[in-house]
Structures are given as C-alpha cells and as structure tokens.
Simulated assay, not measured.
Amino acid sequence: MNLFSWLRPAGPDLPDPLRQRLAKLPPPRELDECSLREQRWVVLDLETTGLNLNKDRVLSIGAVVIEDGAVDFGQQFERTLQCRELKLGPSVLIHGLGPSAIAAGSDPAEALLDLLEFIGDSPVLAFHAPFDRHMLGRAVKEHLGHKLQSVFLDVADLAPLLCPQAQLREAGLDDWTGWFRLEVFERHHASADALATAELALILFSRARQQQIHSPLNLQQRLSQWRRRQQSPAF
C-alpha cells in the first residue's frame, strides 16, 4: 500500500456492470467546423436542493436533444435521484418534488451513468451552465468516481452575445423566453426547463447564422471573445 493512499478519499464501490459501462463512455469531442445544424446538442437542466455549490445536491435531471436543426422528441432524458435523509427546503417545494417522489427516485449512480451515456460525446447547452456543470460534476464524482469532461456552452451568455438589442443584462430564462414570446407552459421542472432552453437555443442558432457564425467552434470562439470584452474595464 502506498504510504499516502489513506490521504485520498476512497471512490464509490461500484458493481462490475456499472464499472464496465463507465469504461465504455466516449471522450467528449472538441467543437469543430461542422455546421450548427449538423451538430448534436444535449440541452440540460438540473433541479437542486439549493444554490450552494458545495453543499446542495442534484434532485432531478431533464435533457432533450437538438439535432438536424430541431428538438428531437425521440431523444429525451428525465430522472429523479433518490436522496435519503433529505431535509425539504423551499427550493424542493418549488420543484414540486415531495418526499415520496424523491424516495421513489432512481439510484443516483445508475441515473448519472444513464445521463453520461445519453450525452455521449456531444456538447451540452444549459442556462447558467457553470452552475449545472459544477453541480453535475460533483454528483458524478461522488456517485461514480468519474470526472465530468463534457463541453458546456452557456445559453445565458449566448443570448446577450447574439441579441444585444434586447438590452437584457443578467437576465433569467423567463426574461429571454418572454422577450422572444415563447410559450412556456411549465417552469421549475427539469424537463420543461430543458425544453424551454432548447427552444431558446434554436432561435439563437438562427441569429448566429445571420451573423455569419456557422459552426460550433466559431460560436465558442465568439463567445470567448464576448466574455473577455465583458470583463475588460470600461474607459
């Protein structure tokens, strides 16, 4: 035994079938010069016990796929994660996930592995993506001992980049769906929010093409440039 092995936290004790599936996960593909329409995108939304990046936990996951320029309703993902000894806070009640729904949820390791297989090597879109990426990464590390490597793009940044005329700063999903007059029939539910984000993303992709942004790589580059401008001091 390595002298310092006791300093490293032990990983989860996964059954062999899960370990075998985990080993078969494809590495994420870097964004390239294919068209925005050709790219398969996974649009993700999480519901969590709160907004604390270090303490709160993932309650439910919803995801849809954009492919061939449209939402593919044949590719949808939804799971509620089983969470024992959960204290119900205000955010849990907003999501409508009561104790019975959470107790009847999926085993977290199984659900998270299902999600990683669903994502595959595709890039992920989310509204306020850094939060979702951090929370999902923590859950994946805790329950699978695996490092989340998927490429994430933040729809909350894409929207003001591509639609500066809206003059919406630090706006939420409701603000942007309202500005585009999208009909959203349900909110604070992972699957419904993922679908709303996907519909918003499709409009943004159309705006991107109008601005001569035709590939995922070009979109990522323009987004990085925009972020640097936002962080630069005003003169």
Rank of each mutant, 00 (worst) to 15 (best):
F118Q: 08
R138L: 03
E183V: 11
R40G: 04
F180N: 11
D174P: 06
G145D: 10
S224T: 14
L219F: 11
M135W: 02
G89Q: 14
S122N: 14
T48H: 00
L116A: 00
Q39S: 12
F127I: 06
D154K: 09
G89M: 09
R228L: 15
Q39T: 13
F131C: 12
H134G: 01
P160S: 06
L168N: 09
M135A: 14
L31K: 11
A103M: 03
V43A: 05
G62E: 00
W41N: 01
A190R: 09
T197K: 01
P233D: 04
P26G: 13
L53R: 14
M1D: 07
Q221W: 08
G50L: 04
S60W: 01
D45R: 10
A156P: 07
D157V: 14
P216G: 07
D68K: 12
L202A: 01
D16V: 10
A156G: 00
D72G: 08
A126P: 05
L162M: 11
D114Y: 01
Q212C: 12
G137F: 02
L168R: 04
R29L: 14
A234M: 12
D72L: 06
Q165P: 00
P9K: 01
H214Y: 10
G172C: 05
S215L: 13
A109S: 14
G50D: 08
A103D: 13
Q82K: 11
G89F: 09
L81T: 11
R222S: 05
V64E: 03
G145N: 06
V43K: 14
A139S: 15
E186F: 01
P15D: 12
L217M: 13
G96R: 10
L97F: 11
N2D: 14
N52M: 02
P90M: 02
E110G: 04
G50M: 02
P99Q: 13
P123H: 04
L113M: 06
L136H: 12
G145P: 09
K141S: 12
L7Q: 11
R133T: 03
R209C: 05
E117Q: 14
P233W: 05
A194N: 03
H128E: 02
V58A: 02
S100K: 15
V140Y: 01
S224P: 00
R228Y: 08
L153S: 05
S5L: 06
P90I: 04
P108E: 05
W226F: 15
W179V: 00
H189L: 00
L7I: 05
G137D: 02
C34Q: 15
P216W: 04
G137I: 00
N2W: 05
L202K: 05
A103F: 02
L113G: 03
A70V: 02
F127E: 04
S100T: 15
A70S: 08
G69K: 06
I94V: 15
I61C: 07
K141Q: 15
Q149T: 12
R229P: 01
F77Q: 03
P12F: 06
G105I: 03
E78H: 13
A159F: 09
D154S: 10
Q20E: 14
G172P: 03
P99A: 04
L7W: 06
L93I: 13
A23M: 07
S91R: 15
R29A: 15
L93T: 13
P90A: 12
L217I: 02
L112E: 07
Q210C: 07
R8I: 09
A111D: 08
